[in-house]
Computed example of a mutant assay.
Amino acid sequence: MKFPFSLTAVSLVLMMGGCATANQPAASKVFSGTYFYNFESSSFTPDGTDETWCLSGSMQEAELPARGASGPWGTAHVVVLGALSGPGHYCNLGASRYILTVSQVIKVSDKRAQEP
């Protein structure tokens, strides 16, 4: 009777170990691309693509001061350290395939204001 119990115990431990590793957070990487922002949303377009990702995290240093009641509105080229989510439907009506969670803004260039 010890063998069936041992086999069940080992199977249970292996299954639990697989579940524990399935949801590990994504590793941080460096991303480069265009940051767009306005009074109600922001997005990131990686260099060399036409994809638009949702953004999470502070990007204030990449933004120009507001020019009126509608708040800041513009673009900048940025290099950031962040983690990319798994694929899904995120942000504005689920239009973004990924969320880039920014932990550090490394470089900002080409800040440009846009009119609403």
Rank of each mutant, 00 (worst) to 15 (best):
G18C: 12
G18T: 02
G18K: 07
G18S: 13
C19Q: 10
A20F: 14
T21A: 10
A22L: 11
A22F: 11
N23I: 02
P25M: 12
P25Q: 12
A27D: 11
S28K: 12
S28N: 13
S28A: 14
K29H: 03
K29A: 07
S32Y: 08
S32H: 10
S32K: 12
G33L: 01
Y35K: 00
Y35E: 01
Y35D: 03
Y37I: 09
Y37G: 02
E40P: 02
E40K: 03
S41P: 05
S41W: 09
S42G: 09
S42K: 06
S42F: 09
S42N: 09
S42M: 05
S43Q: 10
F44T: 04
F44V: 04
F44E: 02
T45V: 10
T45F: 09
P46F: 03
P46V: 01
D47P: 04
D47E: 14
D47Y: 06
G48D: 06
T49I: 05
T49V: 09
T49E: 12
T49G: 07
D50E: 15
T52W: 15
T52Q: 15
C54G: 15
C54F: 14
S58A: 11
Q60A: 13
E63T: 15
E63F: 13
L64M: 04
L64D: 03
L64Q: 00
P65W: 01
P65S: 08
A66M: 04
R67H: 07
R67G: 11
R67Q: 13
S70D: 15
G71A: 02
H77W: 09
H77D: 13
V78E: 06
V78R: 06
V79E: 01
V80W: 04
V80N: 04
G82E: 05
A83K: 07
A83T: 03
A83P: 02
S85C: 15
P87G: 13
P87L: 14
G88K: 00
H89E: 13
H89Q: 11
N92C: 11
L93I: 09
A95L: 05
A95I: 12
Y98D: 08
Y98H: 15
Y98I: 06
Y98K: 14
I99N: 08
I99K: 04
L100N: 05
T101Y: 12
T101G: 10
T101E: 12
V102Y: 03
V102S: 08
S103L: 05
S103T: 07
S103M: 05
Q104H: 09
Q104R: 13
V105G: 01
V105Y: 03
